[in-house]
């Protein structure tokens, strides 16, 4: 590359880094210097939203592990008729606009939806409740875990599983003591990313669960809602700053997991 070419390349890279970095830094600076992180963070609206976000994203994560692990394992290990279709369907929410996910969930579980009337007979109300928040979060975030877990299960050395079987281990024991630990880094990274996606869920939540303080108003929804409120900008900024810090923390953890996996791999193989 010529010196001019290299300079242009470096300049574009610098502009790119600034473009991605500056808005977030401005937000954090405004939150800290403007005092929003102090007083507004302790406001009822922000605390309620924070508590709801922690609770619902934890529930979404639990649903993701329970439903996603078997699915990821089967997709990694078995080829069955139509497995490519299941593979694609599982990945779909990652690329779908969240508003589309919200509408689809509403058409499925809404009171005028495909299953809404049936659920109503059972006395179960899903849309615009905390359950809708959890479903929306699981719908958009589980695919991130499943993708990562599928890749993790695929990389597990089958000979090690066979060795355990030869030693007389049951399938459940092989899965628990050999497969899961060997895929552990990928599973953990997938979980952390899925949690971050669930925590940040906005579009599907506001369409499917609405925006009721203390009930369905999660942190990202509070950012949007308080921005519109009279004198709510500081509370909006405080809620946003919490999300930035959580997202940053998630990326640090994922990085650490990757490093640990890279360092641990030769030892595991050796």
């Amino acid at each position: 590359m010529s010196p001019t070419g290299r300079a242009t390349f470096g300049l574009l890279a610098a502009v790119g880094a600034l473009l991605f970095g500056i808005p977030v830094l401005v937000l954090l600076a405004r939150a800290i210097l403007g005092g929003a992180l102090g007083a507004s963070l302790m406001s009822r609206v922000v605390l309620d939203a924070l508590a709801l976000s922690v609770l619902t994203s934890a529930a979404a994560l639990l649903a993701t592990v329970v439903l996603g692990t078997p699915l990821a394992y089967l997709l990694a290990r078995r080829r069955f008729r139509g497995s490519w279709l299941v593979d694609t369907l599982v990945d779909l929410p990652i690329v779908l606009p969240p508003s589309v996910a919200g509408l689809a969930l509403l058409l499925t579980f809404g009171s005028r939806g495909a299953f809404g009337p049936g659920l109503a007979v059972l006395g179960v109300q899903v849309p615009f409740t905390v359950w809708a928040v959890v479903i929306a979060q699981t719908f958009v975030s589980a695919p991130l875990f499943i993708r990562s877990a599928r890749a993790g299960f695929q990389q597990v050395d089958r000979d090690l599983e066979d060795a355990a079987r030869v030693d007389g281990a049951h399938e459940a024991a092989v899965f628990r003591s050999v497969t899961v630990p060997l895929a552990g880094g990928a599973l953990a990274a997938g979980l952390v990313l899925a949690w971050a996606r669930a925590l940040g869920e906005f579009g599907a939540t506001i369409m499917f669960a609405g925006n009721i303080p203390g009930r369905t108003q999660t942190l990202p929804v509070a950012v949007y809602s308080e921005f519109q409120a009279i004198d709510g900008l500081d509370r909006s900024i405080a809620a946003a700053a919490v999300l930035v810090l959580a997202a940053f923390g998630v990326l640090v953890v994922v990085r650490w997991l990757h490093w640990r996996a890279l360092l641990a791999l030769p030892m595991a193989r050796g």
């Binding site: 809404g110 615009f128 108003q217």
Partner: peptide
């Protein structure tokens, strides 16, 4: 009282889809 605000038409659509208000 729990208050939630949005455009009246948005709230109307939410009620039509079963919002428990």
């Amino acid at each position: 009282l729990t208050l939630a605000f949005d455009a009246s038409s948005t709230l109307r659509a939410q009620i039509e889809q079963g919002a428990p208000a």
